[in-house]
């Protein structure tokens, strides 16, 4: 039972590792709801510019993710989400809703734990394609920019996940090809480490530290300069039984520095995972 709780991670934090089946599951369905509050921006000097107390930028994300193990070493995942954004400032209120990014990916377990080793971790090599359904920074048509849902650009992620016992570590280079509203290709990079502590056989809690870098983006004469941010996440999970897990996740980008040219936010997510055992 202990393996079940942290085998099914979800709801943000850890990024690539969250799309991976690590336990003895043939397939997993995860439904989750996330609430995010944007508190301001960090400037290029790493200083925080917090928004006024009377203003608000709230995002509600409803996600559905499906993961399936096709062979002992090969698995795929698909995620869809629906996003509602609400913004209130300058005496105006604006809201918008629609589909967010569609994600389709696969992992191959390059190094397994089939033979006993005191040190060798499991290593997964992955690829994930992100298809945007919302607008981006350059083509937003709403005054308070509530039509920006997700990345806003086509993107290819190449995650490598290393897992051993209670530890997970991921490195994800990301490629954004030149496309409509992006004059030249650019890239991003993310790395994350997660430690999961088993409180009981059914309950565990995971802590994740993630660093992300977003390179400069240009479109005609407009440019979005490079940015970076740190995110801290805490995620308790409860294995209700062998096939059902409840997950909670809190993420915060204001606790660890240095953040440059990136949003300052806090989010809470609640999710349920149903799994079919092997």
């Amino acid at each position: 039972m202990m393996g079940s709780a942290h085998a099914a991670s979800c709801c943000g934090g850890g990024q690539s590792a969250a799309s991976l089946i690590l336990g003895d599951h043939l397939q997993e369905w995860t439904a989750s709801t996330l609430f995010r509050s944007d508190l301001g921006q960090s400037n290029n000097e790493g200083e925080a510019l917090f928004d006024g107390d009377n203003n608000r930028d709230h995002t509600f994300t409803y996600s559905l993710e499906y993961k399936k193990l096709f062979t002992e070493r090969f698995q795929s995942n698909l995620s869809v989400n629906f996003i509602q954004k609400e913004s209130k400032r300058l005496g105006k209120k604006e809201s918008n809703s629609g589909f967010g990014d569609l994600g389709v990916g696969s992992f191959y377990e390059a190094f397994t734990n089939y033979s006993y080793s005191t040190w060798q971790p499991r290593v997964f090599l992955g690829v994930k394609v992100i298809v945007p359904f919302g607008e981006n920074n350059f083509n937003s048509k709403k005054e308070l920019r509530t039509d920006i849902r997700g990345t806003g650009f086509y993107k290819i992620d190449l995650p490598t996940v290393v897992a051993r016992d209670a530890w997970k570590f991921s490195v994800t280079p990301q490629y954004l090809p030149s496309q409509k509203n992006l004059s030249s290709s650019t890239y991003a990079f993310a790395t994350a480490g997660t430690y999961t502590y088993a409180i009981t056989d059914e309950i565990d809690v995971s802590g994740t530290l993630q660093w992300s870098y977003l390179a400069k983006k240009t479109f005609n004469s407009q440019s979005l300069i490079a940015g970076q941010y740190w995110e801290v996440s805490l995620a308790p999970a409860w294995a209700i039984n062998d096939t059902t897990m409840l997950n909670l996740n809190y993420s915060d980008s204001t606790l660890l520095g240095k953040n440059r040219n990136s949003a300052l936010y806090r989010s809470v997510a609640l999710g349920m995972t149903w799994a079919e055992l092997l």
Binding site: G46, A48, W211, W230, G257, K258, L264
Partner: peptide, 13 residues
């Protein structure tokens, strides 16, 4: 350690 730098919550402009 590599996150050295003031966290945003303590580094208001």
């Amino acid at each position: 350690v590599s996150s050295c730098g003031k966290p945003p919550i303590f580094n208001k402009a």
